[in-house]
Amino acid sequence: MESNWNQIIIGNVAANTYNISVNADNTLTVTGYDKLVITDGGGTYNPSTKVFKFWYTNTDGNKTYRTEATLTKSK
């Protein structure tokens, strides 16, 4: 059973993980990792506050979702 559980966790990570790249002008490029299909996305990085603000649109089958997020350093 444990082996099957590990496969489910790995499958969920592959289906729900994204990459964020910071461009020279501090805009962000968001791309899907492995199985996540991102159709559009972007955002900004503030190097002074070290805050990422981004969004992306992804599809899963015939459904479309939009995610918006702000990532900050833990206090």
Rank of each mutant, 00 (worst) to 15 (best):
S74M: 13
Y65M: 14
T49D: 04
N12H: 07
D34I: 13
K53M: 08
T67A: 15
S48G: 11
D25M: 09
Y65N: 15
N26M: 04
V37E: 09
P47G: 04
I10P: 01
S48R: 04
N12Q: 10
T67P: 07
T29I: 03
A24C: 07
K50V: 10
G61F: 00
I38W: 00
T27M: 06
N12S: 14
L71F: 11
Y65Q: 14
P47L: 05
T57D: 08
T39L: 06
V37P: 00
D25F: 00
V37Q: 06
N16Q: 14
E2P: 10
D40R: 03
T70G: 09
N4R: 11
I10W: 11
F54W: 00
N62S: 15
I9T: 11
A69H: 11
P47I: 04
T27C: 04
N46M: 12
F52D: 02
G41D: 00
T67E: 14
L36V: 02
G43C: 04
T64G: 03
T72I: 12
G32C: 09
G11R: 04
T44W: 04
N46G: 02
G41V: 02
Y18E: 05
A69W: 13
V13A: 12
K50N: 09
T57M: 09
T67M: 14
K35G: 07
N19S: 13
A69T: 07
K50C: 05
F52K: 02
S3V: 10
M1Q: 12
S21M: 04
F52G: 03
Y45R: 01
G42A: 07
A14E: 15
T70F: 12
G41T: 02
N4I: 15
I9L: 07
A15E: 06
I8R: 14
G11Q: 08
G42F: 00
